[in-house]
Write a protein that binds this DNA or RNA. Structure first.
Lengths: 221, 221
DNA sequence: TACCATTGGATTGTCGACAATCGACACCCG
DNA sequence: CGGGTGTCGATTGTCGACAATCCAATGGTA
């Protein structure tokens, strides 16, 4: 049996809006109002309000009482010195906790995502590739038995992705990114936690290299 | 003119529920239902729902669809290796960005909080002391021009406080904590950013020492 | 003209009612 | 006696309407 789609409207709408924001369909400073969204998606304002609350707490929109909301804009410093270091820490934590629990299913999930990336490259579908990239790291974070790791990650990661999605779009280098992920999985397979923890940090830094230079300083501090 | 209480019911209710959770009035695993809260506080369920959503995203409660919500419980590992390192990083980041902007008002705010602590000690009011402690660090985080620092901090800090509030209750050592904060302000006054960044880290670690030992390893990693 | 009260439209804040879902228990049927 | 099945209470999910608030435009007055 498949998924059966019993997801709340709030969650579906949140996913959809996040997608629009991350792909630039809703660029920073765009004005979004509850009634408009309610009309556009055919749901009640109550649903929209809860959705917007989620997005606000995740830092994707900013809303001021009685006035309205706008899509947030994110500074390079914020990404480089605040969000990325936190993301690195979370994924390292998740690996330390979760890697010993990796089983056949886990690696099968990794392989599926790698295949998705392959396909995305073939189709030149950057959005699909980013989606797969996101899923790849979600597997890591979810593997940790501490589920608050995922919840914090959820509130950090979209902003990082937003920043890069709107920046250059790393079109050309997709195959190398795929290779990078493959190498990661290989390291995971060895079961060497220390190596994996180091590798994931290097991976995240490199993946986001183009725009960042100040990173290392802030990580150790 | 003073505050004038133009705060939304959602925010007021969130503050109140957080207080109850952090003081142990609502211990972990307590069941909370929307209608009960709505009745108890005389607000609509819509308000309660938005409040609960906030608390859930902040990791203070866990809710499952169509069943209900319970107050979350937090593991020691989670606090020591995930939440605290992140909190340290946020406050260090905020200091680096915000300290150069500290002005007379900022230090006045610090002094007011120190006075609050003094008073709380005199009244043996632990809750008031914790409240002041929270405000102290909020000043730091708010000083950063990057306001997402505060939003992330808001979603990290309550869980940490919850863990300790429910644990021992550091009753005896209150005066030393006050002194610790005084020393911090003194360092801030010198304007030495590096020293301050180091001091805030030491402060947070020491403040939470009793229950933690593994901390250092995970911070540098 | 300059100033300020008001008013009107847009937007969010709050509410009460109805719909969907879940879990447990009683009930029927073999 | 056992297994499914339906029903019922509790709880969350969704909705449309009304209230409060903000802001800019309007218009009156000195």
């Amino acid at each position: 049996m498949s998924k059966l789609e019993k997801i709340s409207l709030k969650d579906r709408l949140a996913t959809e809006l996040r997608r629009k924001i991350l792909t630039g369909a809703l660029p920073p400073h765009s004005r979004v109002t509850e009634q408009d969204l309610a009309d556009e998606y055919g749901v009640s304002r109550a649903v929209v309000r809860e959705t917007m609350l989620v997005l606000e707490l995740q830092g994707l929109i900013t809303s001021v009482p009685y006035k309205g909301s706008v899509v947030a804009s994110i500074s390079r410093t914020e990404v480089a010195e605040l969000l990325l270091p936190i993301r690195i820490h979370i994924e390292q934590f998740a690996l330390k906790q979760g890697m010993p629990l990796f089983d056949a299913d886990t690696f099968e999930a990794f392989d599926r995502v790698l295949a998705e990336m392959q396909r995305a490259i073939y189709n030149k579908d950057i959005e699909a590739f980013n989606e797969a990239d996101m899923r790849f790291h979600a597997i890591i974070v979810d593997a940790s038995p501490t589920d608050s790791a995922r919840s914090i990650w959820d509130s950090i990661h979209p902003r990082i992705r937003m920043h890069f999605a709107l920046q250059t779009g790393r079109t050309g280098a997709l195959p190398e990114f795929l290779e990078d992920h493959r190498r990661l999985v290989d390291i995971f397979r060895t079961g060497d936690v220390n190596a994996s923890v180091a590798a994931i940090k290097a991976h995240i830094i490199e993946t986001n290299e183009p725009h960042l230079s100040v990173l290392d300083k802030s990580v150790q501090a």
